[in-house]
Simulated scan of single mutants.
Amino acid sequence: MADLIKRIQQGERITITNRDAPVADLVPSASGTEQQTLDAIAAIKNARAGTITHAEFVAMHAKGRR
């Protein structure tokens, strides 16, 4: 169960089936997605204002590639 939660937290959608027929989808919470969006907007604003270091920029870039 913990493995499924970790995969969902990373953005994966998981379909539960019963005899090969889909019955439910496990998806990341919309509230978590909303917070990620707000964090990304704040990071972009900081980048435009020049208030982040090169190392922070590189870390953000790497995180966006996941």
Rank of each mutant, 00 (worst) to 15 (best):
H54T: 02
L38N: 09
A59T: 07
T15D: 03
L38T: 09
T33W: 08
I44T: 15
E56R: 12
T33G: 14
Q9D: 15
G32W: 05
P28Y: 02
M60R: 14
A43G: 05
H61A: 00
V27F: 06
S31Y: 07
T51K: 06
A21R: 15
Q36Y: 00
L26H: 09
D25L: 03
A55L: 07
N46R: 08
K6R: 09
V23K: 04
I52F: 01
K6G: 04
K6N: 10
I5K: 06
R48T: 03
R7T: 04
Q35I: 14
R7P: 05
L38M: 11
A49M: 06
K63L: 12
A24H: 01
K45C: 03
M60N: 04
Q35M: 13
V58P: 02
L26M: 12
G50H: 05
A43T: 15
P22E: 13
G32R: 07
E34M: 06
T17K: 11
H54G: 09
P22A: 08
T37Q: 15
T51N: 10
A47C: 12
N46L: 10
T33E: 12
A43M: 15
T33H: 11
H54N: 08
I8K: 10
M1Y: 13
L38I: 09
Q35A: 13
A43E: 11
A2Q: 04
A59G: 11
H54W: 10
N46C: 11
Q36A: 10
Q36H: 05
R48I: 01
A47S: 11
N46E: 06
G11M: 06
G11Y: 02
V23N: 10
D3Q: 15
A30V: 13
R13G: 07
L26P: 00
A42D: 11
N18M: 11
K63Q: 11
I44M: 15
Q10C: 03
T37W: 06
A30C: 03
K63M: 05
I14S: 05
K6S: 14
D3T: 14
I14P: 04
G11R: 08
M1R: 13
G50M: 11
A30W: 07
I52E: 00
E12D: 13
A59K: 03
R13W: 04
T53E: 08
I16L: 15
A62Y: 03
A40R: 00
Q10W: 01
E34T: 13
D3C: 06
A59R: 13
D25A: 08
S31V: 03
A43R: 13
T53I: 05
G64I: 06
A62C: 00
K45A: 13
G64P: 05
V27D: 02
F57H: 05
T51W: 04
I52P: 01
I8G: 01
E34P: 00
I44W: 09
L26R: 04
R13I: 04
H61G: 02
K6H: 01
P22S: 03
I41M: 03
I52M: 05
A47F: 11
G11S: 13
I41D: 15
H54S: 11
V58N: 02
R48H: 08
P22I: 05
H61Y: 01
I44R: 15
G50W: 08
R13A: 07
L4C: 08
A59C: 02
A49H: 06
A49L: 14
T51I: 14
K45Q: 10
S29T: 12
R48F: 02
E34N: 10
S29N: 12
I44Q: 12
D25M: 04
A55P: 00
Q9S: 14
A24V: 06
I8C: 07
